[in-house]
Design a protein around this nucleic acid. Structure first.
Length: 422
DNA sequence: CTACCAGTAAACAAGG
DNA sequence: TCCTTGTTTACTGGTA
């Protein structure tokens, strides 16, 4: 499909839909973020205090908590993007268009796998049909609007080949029907996230997520006066956060990204991974903050269950567990026969996305059946919060050590200089 | 030099 | 019939 055909894709509506989602998806603190936070972090604290000042850590912690929560039922997805998420459809080309990246039409610094990952993760359901993946990419990366059409082939190629992505049939009986949904295998999610974080640093041509970028991103998200060391710490927090998430994942053994991505080229069946049973087992009660009812994915589909259950496990994610295992037949067909719901389908029913996971969601259906289900996520969030606090403590400790080392080094340097002068 | 990976092109099949 | 989607194979270029 040529870029000019884009109009015929749901791109336009999509944008609107996504916009809404983004709005809805604002983090709980997004509102806060919008507020002028002059108080912030070391707003003007002495430089030396910045590391040892718990405030910034706390902020980072909040930030990272948001990240977690972001994957916990918000439309936001990839940590780093979450960070910048201000609840607005802020991505545009911005996704990679950092200040250092003047050209919005430059080739994105992300691999197709990551682009797909981002697209999927930014969907409220964590599942997207190819078409919408195209749209998302086109929206965020204008480069592709003018790029040769082969990129779509590459996207599909990636989806097929990459084990990180799993196909989910939209509805019952359709095994090979047209337009399946694609979601990210939660098992590989950490790896993808890691790749996302790493890539810009490992890729010379992309500075989009360089410390500077991260810095600006963090600034956008409330942490306003970060020094490089802070950024390091924040990065560490992010990684830490990831590891916590990994702990939470019942599917431990996240393969090193390389490994996981390598698998993709095994040209074997991409869906030979864990069985439905395993998936079921790995299903954690902590899930579904998102009443988003896209859970109607054909429950008969193993892949669907996998997607739904594991997604909710790994990311405290978006699929309403109350529904996700409900056989479609019994799922009250208010949603029509197809399991898939695009943003349009759900847009009116969900501020769920705005549902932070902390704030109880009082919305029709979801609120009703959600009550019991909400508790768990809250508990989980609380646990996570505790973990984050602990982690923050540890990090603070490390930061303190680092500061000490820094001052020792500078002292040593000063002394040696004195020495030389003598 | 080799192996690996990502990207690209293309052929093909299935389905709408 | 055409288009989209999905799979597979082959090839190329970059990188470690």
């Amino acid at each position: 499909m040529t870029p000019d055909k884009r109009a015929e894709t749901p791109g336009a509506e999509k944008v609107a839909g996504l916009s809404q989602i983004y709005k809805m998806g604002s983090l709980p603190e997004a509102g806060d973020a919008a507020r002028p936070k002059a108080t912030l972090v070391g707003s003007d604290s002495a430089d030396d205090d910045e590391l040892t000042n718990l405030n910034w850590l706390h902020e980072s912690s909040n930030l990272l908590t948001n990240l977690r929560l972001g994957s916990a039922g918000l439309p936001v997805v990839s940590p780093l993007y979450d960070i910048e998420g201000d609840g607005m459809p802020s991505f545009g080309p911005l996704c990679y268009q950092s200040p250092e990246k003047p050209s919005a039409t430059a080739k994105p610094p992300y691999s197709f796998s990551l682009l797909i990952y981002m697209a999927i993760e930014h969907s409220p359901n964590k599942c997207l049909p190819v078409k919408e993946i195209y749209s998302w990419i086109l929206d965020r990366f204008p480069y592709f609007a003018t790029a040769p059409t082969g990129w779509k082939n590459s996207v599909r190629h990636n989806l097929s080949l990459n084990k990180c992505f799993q196909k989910v049939e939209r509805s019952h009986g359709k095994v090979n029907g047209k337009g399946s949904l694609w979601c990210v295998d939660p098992e590989y999610k950490p790896n993808l996230m890691q790749a996302l974080k790493k890539q810009p640093f490992s890729s010379p041509q992309s500075a989009s997520l360089s410390p500077h970028y991260l810095s600006s991103v963090l600034q956008q998200s409330q942490v306003q006066t970060l020094k490089e060391s802070d950024i390091d710490a924040a990065t560490a927090m992010i990684l830490l956060n990831t590891s916590i998430e990994q702990e939470i994942l019942e599917c431990e053994k996240p393969l090193p990204l390389k490994t996981s991505l390598q698998k993709k080229r095994s040209y074997g069946s991409a869906f030979s991974a864990p069985s439905a049973v395993q998936l079921q087992e790995s299903h954690s009660p902590a899930s579904s903050i998102d009443p988003k009812a896209d859970h109607t994915y054909s429950a008969s589909s193993v892949a669907t269950q996998r997607c739904a259950s594991r997604a909710s496990t790994s990311s405290l994610s978006s699929v309403d567990e109350g529904d996700e295992f409900t056989p479609k037949s019994s799922h009250g067909g208010s949603e029509g026969s197809e399991g898939f719901h695009s943003e349009e389908d759900t847009e009116d029913e969900d501020d769920p996305l705005g549902d932070s996971g902390y704030a109880p969601h009082a919305h029709g259906d979801s609120a009703l059946k959600g009550q019991p289900g909400k508790k768990m996520p809250r508990q989980s969030c609380h646990e996570i919060d505790e973990e984050l606090k602990e982690a923050a403590g540890s990090l603070l400790h490390l930061a303190g050590i680092r500061t000490c080392l820094g001052s020792l080094i500078s002292t040593a340097k000063a002394q040696s200089q004195k020495h030389r002068e003598k």
